[in-house]
Design a protein around this nucleic acid. Structure first.
Lengths: 217, 217
DNA sequence: TAGATTGTTAATCGATTAACAATC
DNA sequence: TAGATTGTTAATCGATTAACAATC
């Protein structure tokens, strides 16, 4: 069968590749600012400390074509990456749990460059309800249901205490959320078609601390 | 040659394994609370949605022994994991950059269960210097050098703007820091013996957004 | 004892790296 | 043209999964 569609294929793009793509984007923005029009994979590889062949393979998933002996057009490459990752669209999200981490994510400016737009936050804490972080209002948790009825938000960011994570996740799914960015330690049991991306601080701490202890022998 | 030392070996433990270990720990704490004394790998695998063989292999890195037909002693297993990961020690850290993300990490209670103790924060913003988040004081950036002379802190948490990340990282290394937890998007170029753990929010966003778009076909 | 589970060794799977032909 | 770089196909490497013997 022939390859169709905007992007190269439907063969699932490996997660390690996807995780590397924003790194290229960040790097290319700096390259662009320096006025470099064409950039080659070996050059990118050198600056980013990774294999040039891998750079070629990674960039290929966006469908962009490079020119032998020249490299890739910086602008085209940036555009292709942003388009492929969805960073140039507006991806609306709800956030549940307006504690320390939740508030930080609300205030975190960089989300905007990812096209992530947090349109409302929810919490059960009376003291937080009615307040806001930046332009994002913190609403009563129960409002989640009525608000999701009127809007078509697909992404939910979960920054609640671990103990209520599963219940809240289920509520989010019932509200039509298709993807959950889970910052809790809870393992979520949800329908298979729901995309769950877990970002566990403790996983990173584990690697860091263990490697540190290894190095101290 | 014979295997020596407290832990099973010096064959490098795979990063995916290390990343999974805190998940077991979180799960086992809940199991312990339920009064379950012995827990088997197939049981853990079922609850955590992963392969039981993988559970066995993962847990083996801590050096703990299970009993056929019985499983592992819950308490011993928790202790072995905490010990292996260094979560039951006090791992002192500096944090540089007291913006939104930095402040959130300072306030984030869960770090304590990882044995991570942020003992001071540094920033160049006059308005922040002298204030504190929780019990952590925000000091003038230049104090980093004198303070690191008196203390023996090995971990630096980097939550500065991207533009100064490399410079600050170099300063940290000059101050005797051995491991850097990098929350910026910058690629750090540091001596090979320095452990760098990069936690990039945009990598997670990339995977989430791309998978979401894939699922919408 | 019988049988479930550990723990090790082998097979598979997937990602990275290498090789090389195509091309500008 | 000559040569650097892309892009594809093959080889390697490493992690996951399967198979099975040991054991309680």
């Amino acid at each position: 069968m022939n390859e169709t569609g905007k992007y190269k294929m439907n063969r699932k793009v490996p997660e390690p590749t996807l995780k590397r793509l924003p790194g290229y984007l960040y790097y290319l923005d700096k390259v662009k600012e320096q006025g470099i029009i064409n950039i080659s994979a070996p050059m990118i590889g050198k600056d980013l400390k990774c294999d040039p062949t891998q750079v070629v393979k990674d960039l290929a998933v966006t469908g962009i074509k490079g020119k032998p002996r020249v490299g890739y057009n910086t602008y085209e490459l940036i555009h292709a990456l942003e388009d492929y990752l969805g960073f140039n669209r507006t991806n609306e999200a709800f956030i549940v749990g307006a504690g320390n981490l939740g508030s930080a994510l609300m205030a975190y400016q960089e989300h905007q460059s990812l096209g992530l737009k947090i349109i409302a936050a929810f919490d059960v804490d009376e003291k937080k309800i009615g307040t806001h972080v930046g332009r994002i209002h913190i609403l009563e948790y129960n409002k989640l249901f009525s608000l999701s009825n009127r809007l078509d938000v697909k992404i939910g960011i979960l920054t609640t205490p671990n103990s209520v994570a599963q219940d809240v996740a289920e509520d989010l799914v019932n509200c039509g959320i298709k993807a959950i960015w889970n910052f809790t330690s809870a393992i979520l049991h949800l329908p298979d078609d729901i995309i769950v991306q877990s970002t566990s601080m403790s996983s990173y701490a584990a690697v860091l601390l263990r490697r540190l202890n290894d190095s101290e022998k």
